[in-house]
Simulated scan of single mutants.
Amino acid sequence: MFKNELARNRYKEKLKRSLIYQLEKQNTNIEPFLDNIDRYINLWETAISLENDINMNGVRLENGRKNESVALLVSVNKQMGLMLDKLAITPEIVGEANEPIPEL
């Protein structure tokens, strides 16, 4: 998905800034909401690692067993969606505030 670690880190920071920006637009950029963004980012990193494992090892491992990363990825993605729901970040909200996110 990413060319290198630098590209991944840049995207991660942009994602985090975007989420914080969405909270600012809703005037909810306070604790514990900001803490939930950090937790979301951690889940995002976990999802990337699981995707990398699936890309490297496939859906089935060499021994014929299912790659557990597939089921874990589904669970992580579901949790990420729930977190966005709890933060009231929806496609409609993002679409309304579709302004460029400032670079660092």
Rank of each mutant, 00 (worst) to 15 (best):
N42K: 14
P102S: 07
N36Y: 14
P91T: 11
Y21R: 02
N77F: 05
K16H: 10
L73T: 06
L72C: 11
E62F: 06
E13A: 13
E96L: 09
I37W: 01
I30M: 08
Q26C: 01
L43N: 13
A88W: 14
E103C: 05
I20A: 00
E92F: 06
L87W: 08
V76H: 07
R39Q: 14
K12I: 13
S69Y: 01
N55R: 13
L15T: 05
K14N: 12
D38V: 11
R8E: 13
F2A: 08
R65Y: 11
E13P: 06
A7S: 10
T90L: 05
N77W: 04
S18V: 02
L84T: 02
R17G: 01
V59T: 09
E68P: 10
E24S: 08
Y21N: 02
N4L: 10
K25V: 06
E103S: 09
E92W: 05
N29D: 13
N63W: 10
D85E: 12
I41G: 02
E99Q: 06
I20V: 09
G95K: 12
G95F: 08
E24A: 07
E31P: 01
I41C: 03
E99G: 00
E96Y: 07
L72W: 10
T90D: 05
N52K: 11
E103H: 06
D38Q: 11
S69R: 03
E51V: 07
T28P: 08
N27D: 13
R8D: 07
A47W: 09
S18T: 10
K3Q: 14
I89T: 00
L104S: 10
R8N: 09
I20Q: 01
F33T: 09
P100Y: 02
V76M: 11
